[in-house]
């Protein structure tokens, strides 16, 4: 079958006296949409921040695309091919939508101060390429009409899309989305869903943290469940849904 893109083994993280993550191991395969769910405070976002280099981990190791992910600073993680979005959208508010996406190209381009000052031929070609790719991505997520609007002027749904476009601009192998449907209405969620499916069809691997269980179960190829910092299940959605531990911990009484 498909190869493993990300393998995490025995990840541990503690904040003061709280063990936020305990021996979490999981494997994300190339080309799948991998869902990560769990009750509030189960450690989803913490795990996410560990994968993307925002928090240093206390124990365990991560292999990404066959090599150990040792450089843990966020920009190095982005360079390695993991791009992310934030639960509470973090855009560059006073830059245009297009510029936001152009920032995403930073890690794949090289022009420095001197080539910018001299505006060398190589710099001009690279800059044109950055712009072209950014425009393409805005079209891809469906907000090219707003290319010249400031990010803060976009609607909530469009801001989510812009954040995804910015993440895609880093040419990721793995796109990690932190609760992308939070605060969206049904129509927006449906549109988001088809966007994510489109990403998978184009060969991208997606890690999805979501509160919206229906979205996760309908969209993901495999789902892992965290509870109190531990992974209690990892399987296809049908199996996870039937797992008694999961029902007890998360789906519980009255959720479905």
């Amino acid at each position: 079958m498909s190869t493993n893109l990300l393998e995490a083994r025995n990840i541990g993280k503690r904040f003061g006296g709280v063990q936020a993550l305990k021996d979490v191991s999981l494997t994300i395969r190339s080309g799948e949409i991998y869902g990560l769910i769990g009750p509030n405070g189960a450690g989803k976002t913490t795990l996410f921040n560990v994968f993307t280099g925002l928090y240093p981990r206390d124990s365990g190791d991560v292999r990404f695309a066959g090599v150990p992910l040792t450089l843990e600073s966020p920009h190095a993680v982005a360079a390695a091919g993991i791009a992310r979005t934030f639960q509470n959208i973090r855009l560059f508010a006073n830059m245009t939508a297009l510029e936001n996406v152009m920032i995403g190209r930073h890690v794949r381009t090289r022009a420095g101060v001197f080539s910018a000052i001299l505006r060398t031929r190589a710099e001009r070609i690279e800059e044109a390429g950055i712009r072209r790719r950014a425009e393409e991505l805005l079209r891809y997520v469906g907000i090219s009409d707003h290319a010249d609007d400031l990010a803060r002027q976009l609607s909530y749904g469009d801001q989510r899309r812009l954040e995804i476009a910015r993440a895609l601009a880093t040419d990721p192998k793995l796109l990690a989305l932190d609760e992308p449907a939070a605060g969206m209405n049904a129509t927006e969620t449906a549109a988001l869903r088809s966007l994510i499916e489109g990403l998978r069809d184009d060969g991208l691997t997606v890690l999805l943290i979501e509160h919206d269980v229906k979205l996760v179960m309908g969209l993901c190829d495999r789902v892992a469940v965290l509870d109190y910092g531990e992974k209690i299940a990892e399987d296809v959605p049908e199996a996870v849904r039937a797992n008694p531990k999961v029902i007890e911990a998360y789906l519980g009484v009255g959720t479905r």
């Binding site: 993307t52 925002l54 600073s73 966020p74 920009h75 982005a78 360079a79 791009a83 992310r84 934030f86 973090r90 855009l91 560059f92 508010a93 006073n94 830059m95 510029e99 152009m102 920032i103 995403g104 190209r105 930073h106 890690v107 794949r108 381009t109 022009a111 420095g112 101060v113 910018a116 710099e123 690279e126 800059e127 950055i130 910015r166 993440a167 601009a169 880093t170």
Partner: peptide
């Protein structure tokens, strides 16, 4: 330029700038 945009990105949101590979 690429560098100038990165400066503004850091000013606007440093964490997002890091996550975007800067």
């Amino acid at each position: 330029s690429r560098i100038g945009r990165a400066w503004v990105a850091i000013r606007e949101d440093e964490i997002a700038a890091k996550a975007s590979g800067i």
